[in-house]
Design a protein around this nucleic acid. Structure first.
Length: 472
DNA sequence: CCCGTTGGCGCA
DNA sequence: TGCGCCAACGGG
């Protein structure tokens, strides 16, 4: 409950009631006086219509969503927490028993052992075990982050082969620890539901952000701890490749539009183009690469420095980890050139957007609002502007559709950038699936197209299956 | 590459 | 002790 509690210690609150009352009257009065100037300002900035038509009704929609919360399955949480704790203990054991000096096993006030301390861990890896160092941190010590561990593993010398399980355990442990301490320490209200804080103003792109807990970042393997109440079912509805579609239609990128209009898979098509393969020969690894590529390179990423997501390389995870490609620099450069050649409308659009912002100091989204920009001109702003139309546009669309859904009393419990999670009475699942699809797939004004959704349903958040008309 | 939150650490 | 940065997680 602490997150809702006011600071009752504040000296201000010790004043006599009459004084507090007078203060509150002045406060209300001054706030009311600000309404007119605020609306004039919004009008002047070109956002008044959007605020009145979307943000104002969205406030009640968000309050409703926030107060519904997500029901915690305490039994599932209990068993999963034990499982994660055991996993950490097992990894710790693998690492600690390998230290002949015993240095790493020493407990301090801060740490039960030395694994969590980058300094002591580095000493163990690079001095005691004598492993080849990966890279240095800013402050000059040998880094023990995931990327360094990955490099150590990749360049492991023959004589160090016996230490492979230790590096793998470190990798595995890191993820389990994040899950355990950041996502499994959940606070529930009296009714067993978790109610996170939702910020609807404050991000640069009008996306929402969640905290306590950060539900938008909840690791997929931990999501099963949330379940619908008895008699209810989860319904999740996702926009299909939301930003990729916005990019294609805003820039008028004909090849991608063609794929979307024929219900094709744009990431698979990109993979085919990048590697000059027929669609039938595109593997999962190719497709994943193309996806990462699109969200990297096309948003201003550099082929030299672009990092791909790292997956746990340990034996336990080999089956869970998607297949990845390891490409040479020049191959990456070639594929990048090939993509921009086919999608020449994209760099042209990026240029035009940047020129407009440079001249007018705002970006105007065809999806209904302006973003004012006061940042100095430079490479950083340049990259931001390559992303803004998509992320901002996506958020504006989600906001608009959430208002419409809330007018229909759709029981939304979570918004995740491109998707909504609903907790619906089980007998109404089919009705809600059709209603939500209809609202979300309605034509988008500024885009002259509709964006299709994928529907899923299930008995917990981590285990959802595709919904079709024939589903229960 | 972009947008976020969180926990740990180093620095003033 | 507050602040900025990093690293790890998610979404696109």
């Amino acid at each position: 409950m602490s997150k809702y509690a006011a600071n009752t210690d504040h000296a201000f609150l010790q004043l006599p009631d009459i004084q507090l009352g007078i203060y509150n009257c002045w406060d209300a009065h001054q706030t009311a006086r600000l309404v007119k100037p605020l609306f004039d300002e919004l009008e002047h900035l070109g956002n008044l219509d959007y605020v009145i038509q979307t943000m104002e009704p969205l406030q009640t929609a968000v309050i409703d969503m926030q107060s519904r919360g997500l029901l915690l399955d305490t039994r599932a949480l209990g068993t999963y927490r034990d499982q994660v704790r055991d996993g950490i203990a097992e990894a710790d054991h693998t690492i600690l028993q390998a230290d002949p000096t015993g240095e790493l096993r020493k407990r301090t006030e801060k740490y039960p052992n030395g694994i969590g301390s980058p300094k002591r861990l580095g000493k163990f890896l690079f001095e005691t075990l004598g492993l080849k160092t990966g890279k240095k941190t800013k402050s000059g010590i040998d880094s023990t982050d995931q990327e360094s561990l990955y490099r150590i593993l990749k360049n492991l010398r023959k004589k160090d082969e016996e230490h492979r399980p230790i590096i793998e355990a470190l990798f595995h442990r890191s993820r389990l620890r994040t899950i355990y301490q950041r996502y499994l320490a959940l606070e529930t209200d009296f009714d067993g539901r978790v109610r996170a804080q939702v910020k609807m103003y404050g991000t640069k792109t009008m996306r929402f952000s969640y905290s306590k807990p950060a539900l938008q970042q909840f690791p997929p393997e931990a999501r099963h701890v949330f379940q619908p109440a008895n008699g209810y079912t989860y319904l999740q509805v996702d926009y299909s490749q939301l930003e990729a579609r916005i990019l294609a239609y805003l820039s008028g990128d004909a090849p991608s539009i063609q794929v979307f209009e024929t219900s094709g898979d744009v990431h698979a098509q990109n993979a085919a183009d990048l590697f000059m393969l027929p669609l039938s020969e595109v593997t999962k690894a190719h497709r994943l690469y193309a996806k990462t590529f699109l969200y990297g390179i096309s948003y201003g990423g550099d082929t030299e420095t672009m990092k791909t997501k790292l997956f746990c390389p340990c034996k336990k995870c080999t089956d869970l980890v998607p297949p990845t490609l390891k490409l040479k620099r020049d191959v990456i450069k070639q594929t990048s050139n090939r993509w921009f050649q086919i999608h020449h409308a994209v760099p042209r659009f990026q240029d035009e957007t940047a020129q407009f912002v440079r001249k007018h100091h705002y970006y105007e989204s065809p999806l209904g609002a302006r973003r004012w920009i006061a940042k100095p001109w430079g490479a950083e702003l340049g990259r931001e502007l390559k992303n803004l139309p998509m992320q901002f546009g996506g958020a504006l669309l989600m906001n608009e559709r959430q208002v419409q859904l809330s007018r229909l009393d759709a029981p939304i419990i979570l918004q995740m950038h491109d998707s909504f999670l609903l907790e619906v009475p089980t007998p109404e699942l089919g009705d809600w699936a059709r209603t939500v699809r209809e609202v979300m797939e309605a034509p988008v004004d500024g885009l002259n197209t509709s964006i299709p959704v994928d529907l899923e349903f299930g008995r917990n958040w981590g285990d959802l299956e595709k919904w079709t008309e024939s589903a229960p």
